[in-house]
Design a protein around this nucleic acid. Sequence first.
DNA 1: CGCAAGATTGACGGAGTTCAAGCCGAGTGG
DNA 2: CCACTCGGCTTGAACTCCGTCAATCTTGCG
Lengths: 250, 250
Amino acid sequence: MSTFDIKSVRKLAEAQPRPGGTESPCSACAVRNLTVCAPLNPLELSEFSSITTKGSVQAGNPIFDEGEPADHVFNVTEGLVKVYKLLPDGRRQVTGFLIAGDFLGLANDETYAYCAEAVTEARLCRFSRKKLEDMLRRFPQVERQLLSVASHELAAAQEQMLLLGRKTAKEKIASFLLKLSDRYEERGLSGNPLHLPMSRNDIGDYLGLTTETVSRTFTQLKSSGAIRLLPGSLVELTDRDGLEDIAEGL
Amino acid sequence: MSTFDIKSVRKLAEAQPRPGGTESPCSACAVRNLTVCAPLNPLELSEFSSITTKGSVQAGNPIFDEGEPADHVFNVTEGLVKVYKLLPDGRRQVTGFLIAGDFLGLANDETYAYCAEAVTEARLCRFSRKKLEDMLRRFPQVERQLLSVASHELAAAQEQMLLLGRKTAKEKIASFLLKLSDRYEERGLSGNPLHLPMSRNDIGDYLGLTTETVSRTFTQLKSSGAIRLLPGSLVELTDRDGLEDIAEGL
DNA sequence: CGCAAGATTGACGGAGTTCAAGCCGAGTGG
DNA sequence: CCACTCGGCTTGAACTCCGTCAATCTTGCG
């Protein structure tokens, strides 16, 4: 394992393999069981770790941009990352917020089809796409896992299309809070209160709304007692059942 | 190979395997090279065909509904299929229109996460999910192909999110016509003039618009000379460059 | 031909955007 | 320690695109 160093990506102090064993840096990875590496045994993991590189990205910095050669894929191990697409006039659609355990950079094309940027300082595992493809041939269980991940993401994307195409602002915000809360808990983070480090603008670009509408809707949900806004970008979901009804349009 | 027969799915006259050879019904399949079966050689294809079943569905009939046990996956070989999700109050989001060569029914859950319905009479190959999974283990190249398909669909889903979240009605319709035209041509169908067998309502539910807005926007594009509406649900794209500019918000 | 379902057009209204003005809070420097 | 500043958040007012409701018109089909 080495570290990577591209624009906006800082090197990390190199994590030395433990001496005298099949132990690898990956074996200590906190998100290993949440991600594509889950089906590997320690020996395989050690081999896998030989093609990975760790690094971190400062808040607000890009990880890659649309149109760049898609030479690497990534795994988020810490922090929050947003991925988005742009229209020529600058309109933006955030297609996802990624947290520890999320996979990033899958592309069939030779270039990335979207931009990725750190919202908070983030840590990532990086794989060379070429080497990963070789690995996939040798570890078909990882390929199967990857298919499963892609299939989950596809289902989530369809859910998001329903939200974008057919839900009202209030329903969008309620759905967003609930889904994020669930995902945080899946990954062992606090789902309530919920940390929202992204800006109102980012949330708007994720939900197909403007900053102002996001802000007004938060105020509305706060007034109705469904949520509380706490200092430090925290949101408490005080009436989860109520939010669930709102999210489904009931 | 046998035929399948579930509600709304008609049996087809059984296609007999050709006697005395490795030839299989699949080897004559018109969309074979457009779909997941593409990487198989004739011998493998023959084995693959043993787990497939062919059938057809009448226009307007369901193929499966959200929440049903996801026991099968499908491949469209002819006709048009729409895939959609519903909110409790009946609001609908069409998440895709599928044509010959498209794969359908991928689910990690035990149940389908969406509904699928024939728009025109459609023909489908059906695979038992269990048997398909066994096959995937034996033919990793098919699994790789599936991953590639899923990854393409993911990119398309992100494009669609950009459309739903950030494009105007006019931009949505222009994007829709262009993308559909391209996909038709990929599959060897006419991309111009373009056949639109789905209703204005279906188009609206795909683009996050109402029937009325779809209709008005078609009229508008017609008046500006970008398209012509021909009898038989045909649309001629008379100014493709103009449509492309509109689609990108230029 | 006549019917029914879908498509078009019109008039109106409203959810969300746009534009603009204050507010708040974290970081900075005197 | 506190004033200052700057970016993001909130609130207000006017507007607009698209949705809603309703009345025709078209089309495919028996």
